[in-house]
């Protein structure tokens, strides 16, 4: 089962290595991990997607909290949240096929951010499933290059999040 966890961490060298090392040492599988700045320059937020059962999720959460430089951990197990994944994909598109690809991108509300003679680059964001569907659709044209950020997530509205610490 897929779980989304966010961790607010001190913005210090070595923190990412610590978190990544803990996952490796304890045999937890990271599906994706995103680190970014927050509104507070001293803190960063990691959004981590892990695959595992509830028991594993609980251990991941507690082990993350145990890291001294981790300020707060939240899992989205019982709360409603919005998730987004951002993708840049360069698709083969000869002049004859270009219109088809542009139309597909449009159907998915993607944006064309670069056009070349033999290819197009599409920017697309959304939940993971939407990105997967788009990849399926453009596969036949040929994917030259693809890069994704991995999931970031925030809760919906003002619900009480399941926070510890």
């Amino acid at each position: 089962m897929k779980h989304v966890i966010t961790a607010l961490v001190q913005n210090q060298p070595g923190v990412l290595a610590h978190v990544a090392g803990m996952f490796a040492a304890r045999g937890f599988n990271i599906d994706s991990l995103v680190v970014g700045r927050t509104e507070d320059p001293e803190l960063s937020r990691m959004t981590i997607v892990v695959i595992g059962d509830d028991h594993m999720l609980e251990q991941v959460r507690k082990q993350l909290e145990k890291i001294i430089t981790t300020v707060r951990v939240r899992d989205f197990k019982e709360i409603d949240y919005v998730e987004r994944d951002l993708m840049l994909v360069r698709v083969s598109a000869t002049p004859e096929k270009r219109a088809e690809v542009v139309e597909l991108a449009g159907l998915f509300r993607g944006r064309i951010v670069d056009v070349a003679k033999q290819s197009l680059t599409v920017e697309l964001s959304g939940p993971e499933a939407k990105l997967e569907a788009f990849i399926d659709m453009v596969q036949p044209y040929g994917i030259r290059e693809l890069s994704r950020t991995g999931i970031i997530a925030v809760q919906r509205g003002e619900q009480r999040a399941k926070e510890r610490n």
Binding site: P13, G14, A17, G21, M22, I68, T69
Partner: peptide, 14 residues
């Protein structure tokens, strides 16, 4: 040193 000892310390710093 901080890299090597991270998994065997409660905390470390450079």
């Amino acid at each position: 040193t901080t890299g090597i000892t991270r998994p065997v310390t409660k905390h470390n710093m450079l």
